[in-house]
């Protein structure tokens, strides 16, 4: 952090001003002039919260993608299919047992299993041939998409939110002040907050696992320098399988999350694959903190964009990617 400020004072200044402005917009009571210019504060706060919670979802998907790429140089273009598969499994389980929590567990396990099988049966055979692996993941994505279409049809499914998470909560953010002087607070869906907190917890857990456990150290060393892996003498193949299982499982969990606060249907696989691509291009390939930062940036850009410039929203997201590629092609938080 300090080094960044030292090296790029101008960028640091811009970033600090942007963050300060954002904080002010979030916490201050908006003067009437501002409301006239850009609309109600409630709309803005909602967009911010939607953006951040969407960022949480994107992080769940993209973290697995980035981990698999970082360690195995495997650009898994079937990652979106894993997400969608997780969503369908979660839907089936929750519809059958009525348990939301159980649907997470089963979706994680089922999709992780798919990941393990892919790694053992397919990718192990073509290690080091990154282009060929990518082609295979493209083929798999097509096959999976059609198989899922076959089984689940073209319908939209929404996973039932458990009763204890239904309904809004009141948050300590003032959206407006009534003429009586009484402040109006932001109402926000409980389930989205819960899911966001959960993704933060998962993110921190991953970070801890990568930084504090032996296997995490091995994975990290492998991301930085693949030759080290061979030298440490560990069972690389086991590490690969574990990482693939974890990355796929996270996509499965994300599918349940996405199925709860949005919906799942054919085409969502592509959407989330692309979100992961953009998130990791922005955040930096192979970096978990990068995936977190990228996810929040893209989530916010998408939501704010769709509220304030609806016909050009996608352009904002895209411009962020272009800007990052132009100024820092390796991504914001990637080493090197």
């Amino acid at each position: 952090m300090a080094r960044f400020i030292e090296r790029h004072p101008a960028w640091a200044l811009i970033a600090i001003i942007a963050v300060a402005l954002l904080l002010w917009l979030v916490f201050a009571v908006w003067p009437p002039g501002l409301e006239q210019a850009i609309g109600r504060k409630r709309v803005f706060l909602n967009a911010i919260f939607n953006g951040i919670t969407l960022g949480g979802l994107y992080f769940l998907v993209a973290s697995g993608f980035t981990l698999i790429f970082g360690l195995m140089r495997n650009v898994n273009l079937a990652h979106g299919s894993l997400y969608l598969f997780g969503g369908y499994v979660g839907y089936a389980i929750s519809a059958w047992t009525g348990s939301w929590i159980l649907s997470f567990v089963i979706a994680f396990l089922a999709v992780a299993l798919v990941g393990v099988l892919l790694q053992i049966l397919v990718f192990r055979r073509m290690e080091g041939q990154d282009l060929r692996q990518t082609m295979v993941t493209i083929g798999l994505a097509i096959v999976f998409a059609d198989l899922m279409l076959w089984v689940f049809g073209g319908d939209f499914y929404q996973i039932q939110t458990p009763s204890w998470l239904v309904g809004p909560v009141q948050l300590p953010f003032i959206t407006a002040v009534k003429s009586s002087g009484e402040p109006v607070y932001l109402q926000y869906p409980m389930v989205r907050l819960a899911i966001f907190v959960a993704s933060v917890i998962i993110g921190i857990a991953m970070w801890l696992a990568l930084n504090r456990t032996r296997i995490g150290m091995i994975v990290r060393a492998g991301v930085d320098d693949r030759d080290i892996l061979a030298a440490t003498g560990v069972q690389i193949q086991v590490v690969f399988v574990l990482v693939f299982a974890l990355g796929a499982g996270l996509a499965g969990i994300a599918g349940v999350v996405g199925g709860t606060f949005q919906s799942i249907s054919p085409g969502e696989d592509t959407r989330f694959l692309l979100a992961s691509l953009v998130v990791v291009i922005v955040g930096g390939m192979g970096s978990i903190p990068g995936a977190a930062l990228g996810a929040v940036i893209i989530g916010l850009a998408e939501q704010l964009g769709s509220v304030y410039i609806p016909t050009y929203a996608i352009v904002v997201t895209f411009l962020i990617m272009v800007l990052v590629l132009a100024l820092r092609p390796q991504g914001l938080l990637a080493r090197r």
Partner: peptide, 25 residues
């Protein structure tokens, strides 16, 4: 700006962005 396998990702992202853009615009 980047090499090798990144090309696939970036060009795919460009293609997708254009697709969504034509939808929105």
């Amino acid at each position: 700006r980047t090499e090798g396998i990144y090309t696939i990702m970036i060009t795919l992202a460009i293609g997708a962005a254009f697709y969504y853009f034509t939808n929105q615009n």
